[in-house]
Amino acid sequence: MTHAHDHLPHEHTPHEHTPHDDRAQAEILDLDAEVLAEHIASITAWLPLKSAPRQIVDLGCGTGAGTFALLDRFPDAHITAVDTSAGHLQLLREKACAQGVLDRVRTVQADLDAAGWPDLGTPDLVWASASMHHMAHPERALRSVRELLAPGGLFAVVELDGFPRFLPYDVPEHRPGLEERAHAATNSFHAEHVPHRGADWGPMLSAAGFTVEDERTITVRIEAARSEAVTRYARSSLQRLRGTAAPALGTEDLAALDELLDARSPHSILHRDDLTVRTERTVWAARRA
C-alpha cells in the first residue's frame, strides 16, 4: 500500500497517516468535495434504495465528502464515518458541529485491512468512495461489508477512473502532452502499490456474495469558469502528481511542471483560465445475494 503523500487527490487510504500528510491530504479532499459536490449528490440521488436508510456506514470517509452528501440526501439517517486518520475524523467532527449535525454522526478510527473490524452497527447502506481500491485484501473487506449489512441493505462502491486531468493537451506550449506523460510516469508505482485502482468491482462483488443491481459511469467535466476552486484543486492535485511522477519524469518535463506549479511564475497554473476537471466515476450498487 502507498502512503498518503503519494496518493492522488481523490483517494484516501485506510492505512496510517502522519500529521503532515493528514493536513496536506485533507486540503485536497476538501477541494475535491467542493468541486465535485454536484456529482456526489447525483450519485446519492441515483442509488437504487428500497427505502430511505436510517443507518449508514461511510468506509474510508476522509474529511467527509460522502458523509455530508448522504446526510443531506437522507435527513433522518445517522452515519458512522470510518477512517484510519484521526486528523481527518477530527476535521469531519468539526464540520458536523458547524453544520449542526454532530448528533447524527459517529466517527470510528479503524484500519479496514485488519482481519476484524470494530462494531459498526447494522447499516441499511454502506458507502465506500475511492477507498476500496486501497485495500490490501479487498476480497476480505468485501466479505466484511456483506456480513455488516442489514438484510436487504445496499452497498455502494464509488471509484474514479484514475487521476483527473486538468490541462489542455498543448499546455505548456514548449512541452505539449506534459500532463499525460506525468500520468504515464506514475503507472509502475501504482501497479505496485495500488493494483486494484481502476478495477471492475462487479465480479469481485459477485464473488463476495453480492448481487450487483446496477452500475453507472458518470463523466465529469467542470471548467474553471464555473468554480474558482477548480484552479486551487488543479494546482494541489498536480503537486501531488509531481511527487509520484518525479522519479520517472524527464528533466525537461519536470522543469516545465515546476514552472506551472510555481505561484510566482507568469506561466503559473494560477493564471490560467483554460483549466477543466476531466474524469469519470463508476458506481456499483450491490445487495447481499
Rank of each mutant, 00 (worst) to 15 (best):
H271L: 12
A130S: 14
L260R: 06
V230T: 06
R278N: 12
D273T: 13
S268Y: 07
S131Q: 05
A224C: 11
E11W: 10
G198S: 07
G116I: 10
P138F: 10
D161G: 06
A115K: 02
L120D: 12
R235Y: 01
L167D: 03
L160S: 13
A96D: 08
A182R: 00
A86D: 13
P176M: 04
R143C: 07
R240H: 03
A128N: 08
R221V: 05
D274T: 06
V57A: 13
H174K: 00
E192G: 02
Y169A: 13
S42V: 02
T63W: 11
Q25L: 14
R264E: 15
L160I: 00
L261F: 05
T186Q: 07
S265I: 00
H39W: 03
A185D: 03
R242M: 03
D262Y: 02
G116Q: 12
T18S: 15
P168G: 06
L149N: 02
D83S: 15
I222D: 07
T18F: 04
F163D: 10
A45D: 14
P247W: 02
E38A: 15
A136F: 01
Q99T: 09
P75F: 09
D274I: 04
A81G: 11
D273H: 13
E159I: 00
T44V: 15
L142W: 09
L149C: 03
R235I: 14
S268H: 07
E280Y: 01
Q109V: 04
L270R: 11
E94F: 01
P168T: 07
G162N: 10
H7W: 10
I269T: 10
H88G: 08
L31S: 04
R54F: 10
S268C: 08
H271D: 09
D119V: 01
L31E: 09
A156H: 01
K50S: 15
R197M: 14
E215L: 07
A185G: 04
G209L: 05
H3Q: 15
A128I: 01
A128W: 00
G62S: 09
P172C: 02
E27T: 08
